[in-house]
Nucleic acid binder design. Structure first.
Lengths: 235, 235
DNA sequence: GAGACCTGACAACGATTGATGTCAATAGTC
DNA sequence: GACTATTGACATCAATCGTTGTCAGGTCTC
């Protein structure tokens, strides 16, 4: 638990496409049991990755914590690394989903979505500090910089780019400014969240939200577009 | 190599405190040889940590790359983790030393030190991308959040705090604003450096410097100090 | 109850790990 | 040349790793 809604699918009588009742085992179909085991493994991986780190996330340790045997590990995951990526992806996806919900709520209420989104993101990580470690520390290991799949920060950057583009001054900055500001914001927000969770910033949560909003507004207008003057006057 | 000046101590005739000439071996005293081996191990650790990651940094792999045997590993380092921390510390220390030099040069020339410092820091990482991976990715593993020794970002934060305090508006923000802004800046600069090194920001280096300076100036004035109004008017 | 399916416990595999110890060959001093 | 300090190659230790396989015992359907 910790990153998803902990409820199984609501159907009590499962049927296969042909209409015949599916075989059950202790009240669960084969698919339900498999999904449950996969969820158990993901939970165990989440716990280990979020508290001990990637180095401690092994097949045996995960299975022991999940209450399953090694055979069922390879039923749901190809390898140790496959589980690692799945855990990181779950945490990241759930976090951005929370921001998306906040955005839709704000839009429905015709309110500015930025602050609610920031608050939702911070809430998500403050509810469970393991999420922060996974998202901001371990994700860099699971998905190194040159990696083909990158579910973490790029999602944040895309989201910030989107928000910045919503009310950007077309006359002042160019497209590169938008991207640069999105990365700068993603980095600063991540740093503030992590350090606040770690207790190094001894201020109330609401102040973090206000400050992150302030940083957002401040960075929003930053531009480094080339000047008209041929040579920059001074260092 | 990669993070230090690759020259041995210049003395050719070593003498011990009593004045007697120290015994040499291939022209080097015992201390010089030991220091050389330690440097070889650090270089090898730097290479492995900066390209493969902490998971691949083992005693055997480091020794093989350093051209030494395992016995000499434990001559200079207590454990595998000890080397890991030493490598991270070297990269971090050298980077901040470069910023310090830039600051002193600017101060001596009565110029604003911020932009030269930013450029020096970016130069340091762009000269060797392995430094960036070590500083911004692997350091999080070597020194987890609750760790007692934290040579990485806190140094950046202290430095940003120092710069921000130099010309901060006492009337507008309070001490917490200073700290919050320092962390926000550390995070944004790290993110911009990493993404630019990774090729995701396709702009000239000088524009990154300009943009980082812009972010610095913009964040400098951010404040989240409690307002006088009892209730915040709107989200 | 018979037979089929599913489960958990555990053995086994080769490989690798961190760390320590042994030992012959080499480079130096006298 | 004799003797010592130093070196590098390698053996060794228990432990752990990812992964696959075996097998007795439980749980279902008929």
């Amino acid at each position: 638990m910790g990153w998803r809604g902990d409820k199984l699918d609501g159907m009590t009588e499962a049927t296969d496409p042909a209409g015949a009742p599916a075989k059950t085992w202790k009240g669960l179909t084969a698919d339900q049991r498999r999904d449950r085991r996969r969820a158990q493994l993901l939970d165990a991986g989440f716990e280990i990755l979020g508290t001990l780190g990637a180095a401690e996330l092994g097949v045996r340790s995960v299975c022991r914590r999940a209450g399953l045997t090694e055979r069922y590990f390879y039923e749901s995951f190809d390898s140790r690394e496959s589980l690692l990526e799945a855990v990181v992806d779950q945490v990241s996806t759930a976090g951005f989903a929370r921001m998306g919900e906040a955005r839709h709520r704000a839009n429905a209420a015709r309110a500015d979505p930025v602050k609610p989104m920031i608050r939702a993101y911070l809430d998500y990580f403050s509810e469970d500090p393991r999420r922060g470690r996974i998202q901001f520390v371990e994700a860099g290991i699971a998905f190194p910089l040159g990696h083909h799949r990158k579910p973490g920060h790029p999602r944040a950057v895309a989201l910030f780019t989107d928000l910045l583009a919503a009310d950007s001054d077309e006359e002042k900055g160019d497209a590169a400014d938008l991207t640069l500001n999105a990365y700068a914001l993603a980095g600063s927000q991540a740093e503030l969240i992590m350090r606040w969770l770690d207790g190094q910033l001894r201020v109330p949560k609401e102040r973090i939200v206000r400050h992150m909003l302030g940083v957002f507004r401040a960075v929003q207008d930053v531009t480094s577009r080339a000047e008209r003057v041929p040579k920059e006057p001074l260092d």
